[in-house]
Simulated assay, not measured.
Amino acid sequence: MALTRIPVIQYQLSLEKDEGEVLAKLLKLGEDSAATKVLVPATDEEVLFLDRHRSRLEREYVLCLPRSDVLKVVVDKFQLQDELHSHGLSYPQSVLVSRPPGPDSNLADFCHPCLLKPVFSNEWKTGQAEGLVGANKVVLINNKDDLVREYTRISPISRQVILQKIIQQKDLENYSFCSYSDRNGKILHGFVTQKLIQYPDRFGTAVLCRTVENKRIFEYGSRVINALKYDGIAETEIIVEAGTDDLFVIEINPRHWMQHRLSTRLGMNYTLLDIYYRLGMQDKVDEMLSRHSKNSPAIWIDDVGYMIFALKNMLHPGKYFFKEVISSQREYSLFSVDDWRPFWHTLKSKFKRI
């Protein structure tokens, strides 16, 4: 938001503490100001919160949020499977687990090893969840005993989870199609990023990623957005399967995520584009789309995460991708010479936890 030059006033609100209090404060803020107000979610929990209270909040705010019917599909990792398959798009085979598996459970026949994931990602991104699953987005399941043990362990935070077939990724071919689309799902702007480092490895969050030219991923990601008639900002994660070279959609993030700041390196500020579009300022949207330019490849760095990764892998320096980092334009998740506070705060909290 700092790049938009829009004045910002910070209010500390926590959905983990009291959702009702957050809603009341937002409505009060809305009522107290006659100015046009926009709410931009940056986490999965914020997306779901805004959708739950959409009818009340829309009286005071413009919401940077996809339509509710589309949102309900993309945030539900089990429902997303059927929707994508109905359009001829690939998604890893998944089964729903909503109670502890018994001795007669047919889940014993499901492929092993496989992944255990939350149906709703936000459930594994809370303070309580961190104590149970740490930074993991998935849990590896090797047999039925693993499944029983892990389901019992995580049931306090996720009553419904999915077992998902592991798609063996080809080399570093893990991509994200980053896009902005109109109300009919037509792509207004898009670009492709490639994950270079994930933490935890293979099934984690991006620590280092770069923009790439990949027509195949761009076209497949566009098909996904068009098929869902998705409106707004999105990150569609796509991987290439080793051996078959087939493409699989892994997930769709319906929010402003950290790496989308790479859009500014490509001449397009997605946050500002979203705000203009939601406010109905079509002249501003057209102006942005007409004058954007593609610059040389850029790299995004989770600065704190990258530092920790480098420390943990001191004996394997080839994994750092130093050459790629040095030779590219760079965007950072937190670091800024204008305001060091987010960087220092996160660094302190991470190392305190370690």
Rank of each mutant, 00 (worst) to 15 (best):
I197K: 03
Q198L: 15
D201N: 08
G204I: 07
G204N: 05
T205E: 10
T205A: 10
V207K: 13
V207Q: 12
C209H: 03
C209Y: 03
R210V: 06
N214S: 07
K215H: 02
F218S: 12
F218H: 07
G221T: 01
G221Y: 02
S222G: 04
S222C: 06
S222Q: 06
R223C: 11
R223F: 05
R223W: 00
V224N: 05
N226A: 10
A227S: 15
A227L: 09
A227F: 02
L228E: 07
K229A: 15
Y230W: 03
G232Q: 02
A234D: 07
A234Q: 02
T236G: 08
T236H: 04
E237F: 06
I238P: 00
I238K: 02
V240L: 13
E241N: 02
E241A: 15
A242M: 05
G243Q: 03
T244M: 09
T244D: 11
D245I: 04
D246W: 04
D246G: 05
F248W: 11
F248Q: 09
V249H: 00
I250N: 04
E251T: 09
E251K: 06
E251M: 07
N253G: 11
P254H: 00
R255H: 09
M258N: 08
M258L: 14
H260P: 02
H260E: 07
R261W: 05
L262T: 00
S263V: 10
S263L: 12
S263K: 03
T264W: 01
R265L: 15
L266E: 08
M268Y: 01
N269D: 14
T271E: 14
L272G: 10
D274R: 05
D274F: 01
I275T: 02
Y276E: 10
Y277H: 10
R278P: 02
R278I: 08
M281D: 13
D286A: 10
D286T: 09
D286V: 06
D286I: 01
E287H: 03
L289Y: 05
L289R: 04
R291K: 10
K294M: 15
N295T: 08
P297T: 06
W300V: 11
I301N: 06
D303L: 08
G305V: 07
G305C: 13
Y306W: 07
Y306N: 10
F309P: 03
A310P: 00
A310T: 06
L311V: 09
L311I: 05
N313A: 10
N313M: 12
H316C: 11
H316A: 15
P317I: 07
G318Y: 01
Y320D: 07
F322V: 12
F322A: 15
K323N: 11
K323W: 06
K323F: 04
